[in-house]
Design a binder for these strands. Sequence first.
DNA 1: CATGTCTTTGAGAACGGGTATCATTATCGT
DNA 2: ACGATAATGATACCCGTTCTCAAAGACATG
Lengths: 143, 143
Amino acid sequence: MAQRWSDDALARLRATSGRGGAARRAVVEYLGRQNCCLSAQEIYDGVRGRGLRVGIASVYRALEGLDRGGLVQRIDLGDGVARFEPVLPGGEHHHHFVCDDCGKVEPFEDPALEVALERIAGGRGYDVEAHDVVLRGACGECR
Amino acid sequence: MAQRWSDDALARLRATSGRGGAARRAVVEYLGRQNCCLSAQEIYDGVRGRGLRVGIASVYRALEGLDRGGLVQRIDLGDGVARFEPVLPGGEHHHHFVCDDCGKVEPFEDPALEVALERIAGGRGYDVEAHDVVLRGACGECR
DNA sequence: CATGTCTTTGAGAACGGGTATCATTATCGT
DNA sequence: ACGATAATGATACCCGTTCTCAAAGACATG
């Protein structure tokens, strides 16, 4: 599935952008292997760790393209660092719990929450396209 | 009510910090007069606009103290700027809708959403103390 | 009220994530 | 293989936030 996302993302990037590139490919492949959000710096370190000489600017450029195409979700956990994670084709997605104590980030899913969010989207004059939910507190270990 | 929050916040700050200060008082009073979130820069400009010579560092210091005491909520709308708003004593609070087009920020309340969030807090191993919800899309005017 | 101690304050330097710049490199249709 | 042109990497830059430190202010005491 992750492989699937990477291939799909690369194909769509090429369709809108016209030309390929090694840095972009490295970022997409690295991102497709993860299952939760990563900061640009983490992606940069991860890709560099494989011996590829990519610039941090290229990481941001790739992420911007992915974000514009809806292939990646930008997540803000409140620490001033943007994180990114693949948007899976099925539409299912998760939210995040952040431990105030140890800083650990854990994903969670909750259908009832999604329903409540959908209702809000429909009920107001807004045209809601995305929603971010972050829970904060103490995790099981730190409690 | 706003007046009430300011007085309460100042009293509690003094209790934990031991000593008063003009900058802190100015920030708290300015913040207490608002009804939605403000950035540190907006608070700084607002206080300065009243002719008070306060430093931006003092604004951040006051906000940090208020945040530690749970008197203010830190809100991250995803644009890299932290915003702050008073936490009202009743416990009622709202979330935010951000227009991707014009950047307008509107508060909204939704009891059903709160219920869903409460359920999550209870159901997992976490000890949830706070939750942030941000909806993004096109507002009524920009649609 | 005057004094002394200790906290707060304001200005500006420092820091860090993210973006812009620009010469160089790589891609891909021809 | 060639050439037009987009992508890349290093680095300078921007801006929000934090740190530093001397000066000013607050409070207890005499």
